[in-house]
Computed example of a mutant assay.
Amino acid sequence: MVKIDKFSVEGWMDEHENKCQYNIAETCAASISIDQLRELSEAKDKDIFQVSKPLTYGAIRGSAALRTNLARLYSAKSASPLPPENILTTPGAIQANYLAAYALVGPGDHVICHFPTYQSLYEVPKQLGAEVDLWKAKPESDWIPSIDDLKSLVKPNTKLIVINNPNNPTGAILKKSFLQQIIDVASEHNITILSDEVYRPIFHSITPLDNEFPPSILSMGYKNVIVTGSMSKAYALAGIRVGWVATRNPDIVEKIAQARHYTTISVSQLDEQVAAFALDQNTVHSLLARNIQLAKTNLALLDKFVTKNDDACEWVKPLAGTTAFVKFHRDGKAVDSVDFCKKLLEKTGVLFVPGSECFGEEFKGYVRIGFVNHTEGVKEGLEKVTQFVRRNIDDVELTE
């Protein structure tokens, strides 16, 4: 029997997210309805659902419309267009990441995983029998890991390097030249790179005009790259449960496709139709503009919060994505982040995610904040947190 450890962050959300008043833990850009999606489109009269179409399994590897739209996005500013057949759709990015590991690693293999990050990215390879080393980033380095550390972690049996760009929970990004260094290490040892790009392209604090702006690693010329994404985070449509795997290596596509047959067979036709409409050229630019502007507006609120409470918290300001990793302390000692989050929720109705429980014991005092929710809720919630810090932080336990 496979040993499955507790999925801490999802367990925390499952327990608390439907009982809070201010959910500032949710990592999706504020979700939208079908009606709102249509309003964002320049093709408002276009049908989203083909209601006369029989609800069969549909296109097993993903609908032509959806895969074509995704291929177009990945081919932008790339010297080599990505064929639609190099994309497989999945029920969310979590399934995409699972399938990539399931198809490529097992007992006797070694995996290196960017850390801190979403737990499944390193736990699933462990469950499959692989040895996993964490490639750790630290706040004093702006949450950017060391290439020398990566080189030192490589073993003869290293099969996969896993990165998360933009990063959850820190909001840090691995920039273009840094991505090239990762590729250089991987190509030297013929290692496949799995890049979870689920928060791409929410870049709120760096512009495409910056020379170091990170492209999708899929467009950087290394064949043994897999990227995953979804409609949940950057595209504000978590409820349709659509994700994908993309690679330029047809052999990898086939391996993952074969693994996929054992899990989901196909993705719901209805979900894929909504996703295809959202990623159509008539809609996607307005949708992303809405979400990036929301990120910029709310990040300014969070920045003011950190400044106002700088005697009690600190951070490395995020550059992209929807999350920030903020450390709370008292009298020079980190607070117990679980106790902080529980008492905060009880006193104010505000939900944060405790870093020490959900991302690693070493992240004492850290909480993850999902700040790209509806602005009014973020504003009111952060005001409640300020009141809590002023009135109740002395009641929060400290770490040893």
Score class of each variant (00 low, 15 high):
residue 174 L to H: 09
residue 202 I to V: 14
residue 145 P to S: 05
residue 283 T to W: 05
residue 264 T to D: 10
residue 160 L to P: 03
residue 299 L to F: 11
residue 241 R to Y: 07
residue 185 V to Q: 10
residue 70 L to I: 11
residue 266 S to V: 02
residue 167 N to E: 08
residue 287 L to V: 11
residue 172 A to C: 13
residue 136 K to P: 01
residue 128 L to Y: 01
residue 390 R to Y: 13
residue 219 S to A: 15
residue 25 A to V: 08
residue 18 N to G: 15
residue 196 D to Y: 02
residue 20 C to D: 01
residue 390 R to Q: 15
residue 386 T to M: 12
residue 293 Q to N: 14
residue 352 F to W: 12
residue 178 F to P: 03
residue 245 V to E: 04
residue 191 I to R: 03
residue 199 Y to A: 09
residue 2 V to Q: 10
residue 52 S to E: 03
residue 171 G to A: 07
residue 186 A to C: 11
residue 315 W to I: 00
residue 286 S to F: 08
residue 251 D to H: 08
residue 15 E to R: 14
residue 113 C to E: 02
residue 89 T to P: 07
residue 290 R to V: 04
residue 97 N to P: 03
residue 254 E to H: 09
residue 148 D to N: 12
residue 312 A to Q: 03
residue 265 I to T: 14
residue 8 S to I: 02
residue 170 T to F: 05
residue 108 G to N: 10
residue 19 K to R: 13
residue 51 V to E: 07
residue 371 F to Q: 05
residue 125 P to H: 02
residue 58 G to C: 06
residue 79 A to H: 11
residue 347 K to D: 00
residue 130 A to R: 02
residue 329 H to Y: 15
residue 285 H to I: 10
residue 162 V to N: 01
residue 177 S to W: 04
residue 149 D to M: 04
residue 385 V to N: 03
residue 323 T to F: 03
residue 79 A to Q: 13
residue 202 I to S: 01
residue 329 H to S: 14
residue 43 A to G: 13
residue 208 P to N: 12
residue 315 W to A: 00
residue 102 Y to R: 01
residue 393 I to H: 04
residue 263 T to G: 01
residue 154 V to L: 11
residue 14 D to H: 12
residue 379 K to I: 10
residue 331 D to I: 04
residue 388 F to T: 01
residue 359 F to G: 05
residue 348 T to C: 05
residue 383 E to I: 07
residue 213 F to K: 04
residue 14 D to G: 10
residue 344 L to S: 05
residue 45 D to W: 08
residue 45 D to F: 09
residue 159 K to C: 06
residue 146 S to P: 00
residue 192 T to N: 07
residue 296 K to E: 12
residue 193 I to C: 15
residue 245 V to H: 03
residue 290 R to G: 06
residue 167 N to Q: 08
residue 248 R to Y: 05
residue 23 N to I: 06
residue 382 L to V: 04
residue 176 K to I: 00
residue 319 L to W: 01
residue 346 E to I: 07
